[in-house]
Design a protein around this nucleic acid. Structure first.
Lengths: 223, 223
DNA sequence: TGACTTTTTATACGAACGTTCAGATAGTTT
DNA sequence: AAACTATCTGAACGTTCGTATAAAAAGTCA
């Protein structure tokens, strides 16, 4: 079930063979990703990560460095892929003649819903890890450099549709859009609780209502 | 500056005098509230809370019990007040002839923005603590019983305006509304980063754009 | 094969953790 | 004043934490 990861190995040998420890390293990072996503940085111990990845304690330090370094490595690992997906969605839209606000929001949101809904549990873990961090200003300086550039590209594209809109209102609307998007990934529980029926199983099941909500809110907020 | 707390003391003596340790207990709970809000449950040590409240280590245990108990006490302490504010807002609306969706959303989110913007740093801390917890399914079972009843009252009021709307879509829209509301309290930083200008200083400054966004999104999502 | 590098094991260290408690202190009641 | 209860102090307990490291094992290259 685990599809091949699209994360480049750190140091491939010139002849193409990966270094010996690369498999172990991936196992450690994957386990760390799952643990950090499940309970957050502080609640996870190196020993838990070691047990989860099936290696001994020292190996985690050998491949991951300090706990802080390990955490930042996990954070950084998949951002480029996610950014690329979002940029591709945007480029694809630009090929069309008429682009709506709904198209743009859908293009921004769907890659994230997509990876959170994939079969690959690692991508799901990463999506949940991000959801855990956005509510914490401690990690913003780090996230800023990784995610804001693409967000600004989308803001620029939206600004073409609404040239007279206040930039600050648009930035706020985008932040609210992201918060809505992430809340869907972070918790499926509450929607179940508030409506009688069981909610969709995967984040992708919320794609339509999410785009509706965010686009409707966005348009209303900036006018 | 610290205005009198509206939290009832635990065990007032029959003659009205508070028990001796009640002041200390409040100091401990306040300090715990600030610490938990700042960095989350796991990153805070009892010793930090003791230092923050200016008492010795044992006193924290004496008044707060175990760390888990202390945390749950802090969580529970202010919920009734917040629920009361929201119920009062709703009751005030019902006195009016015509109530709009905007009115209802404003009535729901304003008490929260209000306490997060107050001078009292303890209410601000509590608001941020809540923001930290909603993204964590571990605490949902606990939060559910405290907050969902009032949320359901608002859902019912909205349902009166839109009798034909799908309950599940409405529940989803409310969850997205709450997520938007909380994201404003959780982080002021990103909006600054995405627009050039500095953002409003307090959450209340976002009241209008937030109501616009959520009401516009809500109406669009359920139709 | 033997020298060399990379990886893994097993263990240890000091620090910090949550919790407990006997005894000191202070306030209240008789 | 004496007995009593509530509160606080200071120190200790056993555990777990992150990190470091010497030595063993495995793999690579001459």
């Amino acid at each position: 079930m685990t599809q091949p990861s699209d994360i480049p190995s750190k140091s491939p040998k010139p002849d193409g063979r990966v270094a010996r420890g690369e498999i172990t390293r991936a196992r450690v990072l994957d386990a760390a990703e799952r643990c950090f996503a499940a309970t957050g940085f502080d609640a996870v111990s190196i020993r838990q990560i070691a047990a989860e990845s099936g290696v001994t304690l020292g190996v985690v330090g050998f491949h991951g460095g300090s706990k802080e370094e390990l955490f930042r490595t996990v954070l950084a690992r998949r951002t480029e892929t996610l950014n690329r997906l979002r940029r591709e969605s945007l480029a694809q839209l630009r090929a069309n003649e008429s682009v709506t606000l709904e198209d743009l929001i859908d293009a921004y949101i769907t890659p994230y819903l997509d990876i959170a809904s994939r079969g690959d549990p690692q991508w799901r873990a990463y999506a949940q890890l991000i959801a855990r961090l956005v509510s914490d200003d401690r990690y913003y300086p780090e996230m800023k450099d990784r995610y804001d550039p693409v967000a600004l590209e989308y803001l620029a594209a939206i600004a073409e549709l609404y040239p007279k809109a206040d930039p600050q209102l648009m930035a706020t609307a985008l932040v609210l859009t992201v918060a809505s998007m992430i809340s869907i990934v972070a918790s499926n529980l509450r929607i179940d609780g508030l409506s009688g029926k069981p909610a969709p199983r995967t984040p992708l099941g919320y794609r339509k209502v999410l785009v509706d909500f965010c686009a409707g809110g966005f348009r209303r907020a900036i006018e």
